[in-house]
């Protein structure tokens, strides 16, 4: 059971949150200009990282805010949480 540290509310139980998958995926600025492959990359291809992944969560049964987190996909440990729009903190592993 994950204990997730919402940057706005503090540590809360996993079931208050909604998982949003890999973070820092940006929608192409002009979708009409990208080819089918690039569109598929944006829509369907994810890194599926073994290890530390930047991902996004929403504190849906709390403040409702989306935020980013660095979490290890092997140990489930959270290394950092940070706000949407911010870059992932560096130097963590």
């Amino acid at each position: 059971m994950l204990l997730i540290n919402c940057p706005f509310c503090g540590a809360r139980e996993e079931h208050e949150f909604h998982y949003g998958g890999q973070a820092h995926i940006t929608r192409p600025a002009d979708p009409e200009q990208v080819d089918d492959k690039a569109w598929a990359d944006y829509l369907y291809y994810r890194k599926n990282t073994l290890g530390l992944q930047a991902e996004r969560w929403q504190h849906s049964f709390g403040c409702g805010q989306w935020f980013n987190a660095l979490r290890c996909s092997q140990t489930h440990q959270f290394k950092a949480v940070y706000k949407m729009g911010d870059d992932a903190p560096e130097g963590l592993s």
């Binding site: 998958g21 996909s73 092997q74 489930h76």
Partner: peptide
């Protein structure tokens, strides 16, 4: 469980 994992451990709920 909804989240990425390679740990073969899920959540209790």
């Amino acid at each position: 469980d909804p989240y990425l994992s390679y740990s073969q451990r899920g959540s209790w709920q």
